[in-house]
Each structure stands twice: as structure tokens, then as C-alpha cells.
Nucleic acid binder design. Structure first.
Lengths: 213, 213
DNA sequence: TTCAAGGTCAACCCCTGGGTTGACGTGCGC
DNA sequence: GCGCACGTCAACCCAGGGGTTGACCTTGAA
């Protein structure tokens, strides 16, 4: 038996969800909450498997409530608004699912079972945008460590990561431009970078330099 | 009527998909392909709405095939293996959906309709991992120094900070090299940087990107 | 409707950055 | 003594990055 809590500030909606859920033999509503804080308290006491969570609620919104109970049960966010920020915030807060209130009842019930089983499920519209968000940033070319990089090379790398040109580096280190270029060619090979931009990335990612904040 | 192409190297599986799909009044199979290249050719000629695409196929795999037809129709990848790399590669290649072959027939049919409508749908297991991947990178706290930089420019800057070359950025954003160069020229002025290395620095220092740790 | 801003694109030019090869000197360990 | 790692330097080549100008289109605000 999958134990469900319904958290929504509209009593009417809670009621219909309860009827819907209780009509299934393997599901049961073990509590209702009208605010975020009530939802948190209920999750702690009633120990449901899944909480159907609205986003907009008095006292504490569904996002914050999700964040507080993410470790004690699964959260399925069900909202009227598919705003990007709602979706992203909910997922980061630990929600296992995100559905819109126009979801057919049968799909909602299926979603509860999916979430209870430890998997995740999103409304198709939400899925599409999450994929867009995901593909927005390409696979990041992983950065190699700084093993094998000599002291001098590390020095040059630091200056590159400060934004200096080859000539400026040469002047700063009191060596010829040719020497700087040699160091850089070797750095590119050792760090497996393609150009100085990727060297800057390597410098940050390896911790050689870090954001000043 | 939603027009469907089935691409899979197993004739038996193509047959059962065809029977399943054709049993629906609003769906029809307009072609079958046994290889990736066949799938591409078929997509160009038959102009289906949705291609059911296997990943492992002779000649050309489903990922590459997806990449080549992403602009002419939707692709729903259906595979036996839910390997992370398959999922990520398929989504980056432009797939609108990713299902496993153990999906119940009724769900597969529903998925075809969802994908045909322009939305997206993933197997619950896949959804869960995509969310994990998404939340792995924390929300960027940023705001600093990047005033006056447009959304598109910010996007380009992010890609530069990932180490992409201008050509790669153009390919990723689906625009010409000239456009990318224009954005970069403006970025250099606005951010007061001299070259892309300094742009990478600006991206890190402004919090637009941050070290993965 | 007009204008500004943002996004897109092309053609041109110039120069730095990066690849390649080869060289010389130092200090170190074997 | 010898080899080796490291730092130094030069000459050459060229592809890509970056600057400049000017253009078109769409959107939204004035």
C-alpha cells in the first residue's frame, strides 16, 4: 500500500485528490495539509511514501517544504503553473516529479506509483524544457590534472589564467617570446587543451587559480 | 494521422511495432529501416512525424541518424540499454524522447503521440537520472560585471568558457560562424576583454560558470 | 508607423597564437 | 662519464581569432 499526503491550500482540490487516490486499491491518503509547514509536519508524523505538493501555499511554499522533507519521502509537485523557475527550483529542492494540474487522473495515479518506486516523472512540457536546458550546455571537455606540469610551466599557466598575452608573459618573466611559446605548446599537450582558452579553464578547474569573489 | 517510421535492425521487432502502431486509428507506419542510413533516407522521403529509433544499428547508429534528421521530424529513441551515454548523446543529438524496450505497449503509443505533439517524454528511470544530472550543477548565483550583456551573448560566453571554438559554438547554436564572431566582438567590448582567454576569466569571475569541483 | 535593440549574416583585412623542428646550456642522478 | 629533465631560444608556417563595415529581419516600445 502506497501512503499519500495531499498538500494544497484549496480544500476542494484536496478533496478530489483524496477521492481519486482512495479509489485505487493500492493507494491511500493518510493526511491532508493546507500549508507548507503543515505538509512538513504531516510528512514527519504520518510518514507517507509520496506527498502531492502544490507550489503556491500560505506560510511556506511547496518548494521550501519539499526541501525539508526530501529525505523522509518522495515529493510529486503538482501545480497549475509550469513556470521555468518553479520546475528548476522544485527539482533542485529534491522533487521526484513535476506535473501540471491538467494532467488526466489516470496519469496522476500512474505518476504516484512511479515516484513511489523511486523513479521520476515529469509532464511532457516540462520534460521538453528540461532537455532543452540540459542540451543548452554541451558535454564539457573534462580537464586533465596538473601532473607532470613543471614549475615554470605552472607559472606560465597562471599568467595565462590572468589574461596576459604571450608578449606580456615574456616581459613579465624576462624571457623571450619563443620561450613562452614553447612552454605553452608543452602545456597544451600535458593538460590536453586545444588553445589558451581551455588552458584558462584548466587553471580554474584544477584550482591553480580561483575566483576572487 | 500521425506518420511513423520504425528503425531497428531486428525484423521481428519492427514487425511487432508495426502491428502495434497500425492497430491505432490515429497512427500509421509509413516505413521501416534496418540501419541508420536507411532511417535517414526514409525520413527524408517518407516525411514521417515520428521515427522510432533504435540505438544499435549497422552502418550508422541511431544517435548519428537522429542528428541528421532532427530538423525534419521528431525522434523517439527506443532501446534495450539505458546507458547514461546513450541517453545524453541521444538528447544532445536532438531526440524528443527516450524509452526502454520494456515499456508497456500502451505507454509507447502514448509516447508517440506526445512526441508528435512537440513535447518530450522519457522513461522514468531516465528521467530520474536526467534530474540528477541537472541538479548536480548548482544554480548559478551570478550577477556582476555582466550588465548590458544580452541573453544570446551570455549564452555564447558560456560556451566560450566551456572551451569551444567559434566553429563549435556556431554548430551548437545552429548559426553561422559570422554570427558567433559578431557576438564575441560585442562581448569583448562589453566585458572589456582583449581575447577569448580573458572572456573565460570574466565568465568564471562573474559566476556565469563555476568550477565543477 | 517609426524607431531602437537584438539577432543574424557576409566580405575583408591583419595579427596573434599555436605547431614544428632543431638547437644549446644547466643541473641532476646513475 | 653519460643520459635526462628542464629551461632557454630561433626560424618557419598557417589557421583561427579578432576588427571593421555594412546589411537584413523581427520584436517591442514610443
Amino acid at each position: 500500500m502506497i501512503r499519500v499526503v495531499v498538500a494544497d491550500d484549496q480544500a476542494l482540490l484536496r478533496g478530489s485528490f483524496r477521492v481519486l487516490v482512495d479509489s485505487e486499491p493500492d493507494l491511500e491518503v493518510v493526511g491532508e495539509a493546507a500549508t507548507g509547514s503543515e505538509a512538513v509536519a504531516l510528512a514527519m508524523n504520518a510518514r507517507p511514501d509520496v506527498v502531492l505538493m502544490d507550489v503556491r501555499m500560505p506560510e511556506m511554499d511547496g518548494i521550501e517544504a519539499t526541501r525539508r522533507i526530501r529525505d523522509v519521502c518522495r515529493v510529486l509537485v503538482v501545480t497549475m503553473f509550469d513556470l521555468d523557475s518553479y520546475v528548476y527550483d522544485a527539482l533542485r529542492a529534491g522533487a521526484s516529479g513535476f506535473l501540471l494540474k491538467d494532467t488526466p487522473p489516470v496519469d496522476l495515479l500512474a505518476a504516484i506509483r512511479v515516484v513511489a518506486s523511486g523513479e521520476a516523472l515529469l509532464a511532457p512540457k516540462v520534460t521538453r524544457r528540461l532537455i532543452e536546458e540540459f542540451t543548452r550546455t554541451p558535454a564539457v571537455p573534462r580537464v586533465k590534472g596538473l601532473d607532470g606540469v613543471t614549475e615554470r610551466e605552472r607559472e606560465v599557466l597562471t599568467l595565462i589564467a590572468r589574461g596576459l598575452s604571450n608578449n606580456e608573459i615574456a616581459a613579465h618573466l624576462q624571457v623571450s617570446l619563443a620561450t613562452v611559446k614553447t612552454h605553452i605548446t608543452r602545456l597544451l599537450a600535458k593538460v590536453e587543451a586545444r588553445d589558451r582558452a581551455q588552458l584558462v579553464i584548466a587553471a580554474y578547474e584544477s584550482g591553480l587559480v580561483s575566483t576572487a569573489g
